[in-house]
């Protein structure tokens, strides 16, 4: 029987969502044009050339190396692109993703990227044309709710603050706004420089939908132990206890 990764234990919706994020088997909820994603990232003007740090690999004459022969370079690496980043802030009020799960998603599903996990934000670095693809995937999929998640290259705080009256995550730089038509619009790029036009990101999730798609265990949502009052803890907690025990007693060696 072929090996099938399990990714994450548990039967709760949060456990299922975490498995979806890690496996990359995500539902596509919206389609934001590539040019708009590039504009929000703010590294280059849409349609402009990619800046490079070295000539294309084909022109460089790489050394004879078996690993280089096995592993095909990503499009960005082959072209010699600069390394760029996109950074996300996800509200703790039931945002679909969290820094850890964005990193798991990146590390497992995105070739040639470097995810960085912080308490309130998550950054992925990769070659420019690769990171643009990865960022679009994040924007378009159920990893992102346009009200509760936003791309913030700096002044990232907001993830642990209360939401605004209209359900948006607080942003000191007001990079996104809720339109009168109920759609969320990006008005600035990820570092707060105004865009030349407003970019429609679509409608935000309802509170119920955000709770359904979240990867956050919360006492006022779904606790990690599973349904309150159940006779048995969810497998996620059992697995965690198991890892804790192995790690505490013998050093963590999953075998």
């Amino acid at each position: 029987m072929a090996y099938k990764p399990q990714f994450y234990p548990g039967t709760t919706t949060v456990g299922i969502n975490r498995r979806k994020h890690m496996s990359g088997n995500l539902e596509k909820l919206r389609d934001i044009p590539e040019a708009d994603v590039v504009a929000i990232m703010g590294h280059r003007a849409p349609g402009a050339d990619y800046s490079s740090t070295h000539p294309p690999l084909k022109e460089m004459g790489e050394p004879d190396c078996p690993i280089r022969q096995i592993v095909a370079p990503t499009a960005g690496a082959a072209a010699g692109d600069r390394v760029r980043y996109s950074q996300w802030t996800d509200s703790m009020y039931f945002a679909p993703s969290t820094p850890y799960w964005r990193s798991y998603w990146g590390a497992i599903n995105c070739k040639g990227c470097d995810p960085g996990t912080l308490s309130g934000r998550q950054i992925i670095e990769a070659r420019e044309r690769d990171i643009e693809i990865y960022t679009k995937q994040q924007y378009d999929s159920e990893m992102t709710d346009v009200a509760l998640c936003s791309m913030r290259g700096c002044t990232v705080h907001g993830h642990s603050l209360r939401l605004e009256e209209n359900g948006m995550q607080f942003d000191m730089l007001s990079r996104t706004e809720m339109g009168k038509d109920g759609n969320v619009y990006a008005t600035k790029d990820q570092v707060g420089i105004p865009l030349d036009r407003k970019i429609n990101l679509g409608k935000p999730m309802t509170e119920a939908e955000a709770k359904k798609r979240t990867t956050i265990f919360r006492a006022d949502g779904l606790p990690m132990c599973g349904k309150a009052g159940a006779r048995k803890y969810d497998e996620a907690v059992e697995a965690l206890h198991h890892m804790w025990e192995l790690r505490s007693k013998w050093g963590f060696r999953p075998e």
């Binding site: 703010g42 290259g153 700096c154 002044t155 730089l173 007001s174 706004e177 600035k188 790029d189 570092v191 707060g192 420089i193 105004p194």
Partner: peptide, 14 residues
């Protein structure tokens, strides 16, 4: 904008 590459850009909303 207080810091970062966009430092000094006005925030009209505020």
């Amino acid at each position: 904008v207080p810091y970062g590459p966009g430092r000094g850009a006005p925030i009209e909303e505020n």
